[in-house]
Write a protein that binds this DNA or RNA. Sequence first.
DNA 1: CTGAAAGCGCTTACAG
DNA 2: CTGAAAGCGCTTACAG
Lengths: 341, 341
Amino acid sequence: MADISGHVTIEDVARAAGVSVATVSRALRGLDNVAQSTREKVEAVAAELDYRANPAAAQLATGSSRTVLVSVSNLAGWYCAQVVGGAEAVLSEAGYETKVMGVAGVEARQAFVEQALRMSKSVDALILVDIRLEPDETEALRGSDIRVATIGNAYPGLSSVRPDDISAARLAVDHLLDLGHTRIALIEGMPEDPMRTEVSWRRRDGYEQALARRQIALDPDLLQAGYFSIDGAQEAMLRLLALDEPPTAVFAISDEMAMGAMGVIRESGRSVPNEISVIGVDDHPVSQTVGLTTVRQAPAANGAIAARWLVDDLAADECNLYTREVEIDLIVRETTAPPCS
Amino acid sequence: MADISGHVTIEDVARAAGVSVATVSRALRGLDNVAQSTREKVEAVAAELDYRANPAAAQLATGSSRTVLVSVSNLAGWYCAQVVGGAEAVLSEAGYETKVMGVAGVEARQAFVEQALRMSKSVDALILVDIRLEPDETEALRGSDIRVATIGNAYPGLSSVRPDDISAARLAVDHLLDLGHTRIALIEGMPEDPMRTEVSWRRRDGYEQALARRQIALDPDLLQAGYFSIDGAQEAMLRLLALDEPPTAVFAISDEMAMGAMGVIRESGRSVPNEISVIGVDDHPVSQTVGLTTVRQAPAANGAIAARWLVDDLAADECNLYTREVEIDLIVRETTAPPCS
DNA sequence: CTGAAAGCGCTTACAG
DNA sequence: CTGAAAGCGCTTACAG
């Protein structure tokens, strides 16, 4: 911490140690063709001078930046923050730095691949979380020289990790069905393209499948968009309550939306779960405190998995295609109960 | 998106456009000493070749990386995620990339400044959120050539933005006092050093001041560490309920902790707010859904403010010292009421 | 085991 | 307005 020496270069170290810059470079990076005594001297001098290699120079020479970019749809949201946190932990552990980029809104989405490609020179790999890719974009990414892994969505030729969303949704809906509900609402993400994420429609698929198995007809009135936001879910719930025949249970595809819905239900004077059951997905940290029944997913672990793949491939100079579907569990708490009859 | 050309360099563009690399460099960066016709030709060629400047090379030549690092104590937590999100939005808007680094745990904390300094060559500025600095570390940072801004804490010679935590805490406690409570518990962050953040003790100061003004003696039993986590707060609440004379109100210095406490209170069969009032700070998105009374702070805005300072200074090639204390508001909802007597 | 030298892809005085 | 050339600070064959 002592020296604040503006700019100590490898040359300064070489001079002070009485060796060539090549030797300094080798010694400091731990290459094995360096005499032990030389290495020690170089290390001592480097430490004394408080030398730190300039990564830009190293990158220019080697072509590797030792940083990975994680692009997320909503940097500040719980889900994305978890993924970023999980990824960053393994990356920094492995000696990589992590860059983040938020891709919010349609315009950002449009420019995204272009921007990612531009950054491809300053990044060794890319983790894409919950960003929907068009086929030509998938193609462009696959053709570029950076490795990519996606979380939440899966595309041909790209590594991906995601929960089995269809099963997750069926688990939730079956739970409600088992309790005796038949009028089950779905609060989903985006109603339709262009930002609509795969997660949303996969969970809807699960919802539809679960109902179909029990011969329950789909009622379009019970499908409401909540846009993955609390506000959106609150409005969706308001619409559901205004129905001639409101649902007796609601499945929201995120815990935050489930909590938003619960708030609205209670404000309307109805009780959860006695009059309306609510179930979410995530197992958000506060869900436990409000007793929300949910389907757990562990986004931090997903981020860590993707980061691990990338780091391993980078270290081995390989480029494998990995895919992983992670398990989900139903966590029954106090917001679900049989319908009151 | 067409070309996946592994490596188009400035030289390729120069050759194709029939000019020198110097001219390409000037034209593409919009410098003004370039003939309009030349610029157009160069731009056309660059676009056709899908050329993107290698940032590492630019950085080596200019010394600037156009990226800023934001270091946070808990990347995955709501508060930090908000700050990062707010900062990233203004940074990317201004053409900067953002790196993140989690500094969790004591070991990471120890190595932190060293690491930040090492990264100082690949970063133009640093935003430090809720990381406690020792005087010599502050000194080292101030002496380095990167600009730094801190959020949550303030240090001599470094720019900082933070809420007026003392007032925030007083606002919360006064609210409880005004309702008639006198036995008010505090669930704080870390009980003591080394990771204890300034926020925690500032809010405790506010708590103590508010009580002192009303001549209410401090009861050490009512002070419990919640470690800024839900689990921690739940345990703290359990200890409070086990007291011979439990509190009639609790002030938790974060909403998540407040919600954790609420859960425990309700599980114990007591009602909120009838038997025990609860107030938090943050205005976390789900707080609204559970009706939690709180003191609002806007971490995303703080991140944006700090980022804006840095970007402006960088653009103007200045290095100003900014400080800002942001306003906080009391949001009264349904978890606070007069004590039952 | 070590050094001299070329090269990575830009930017920026310096001439013209 | 434009070009030739030096330089940014590393790494890596290539010799020895």
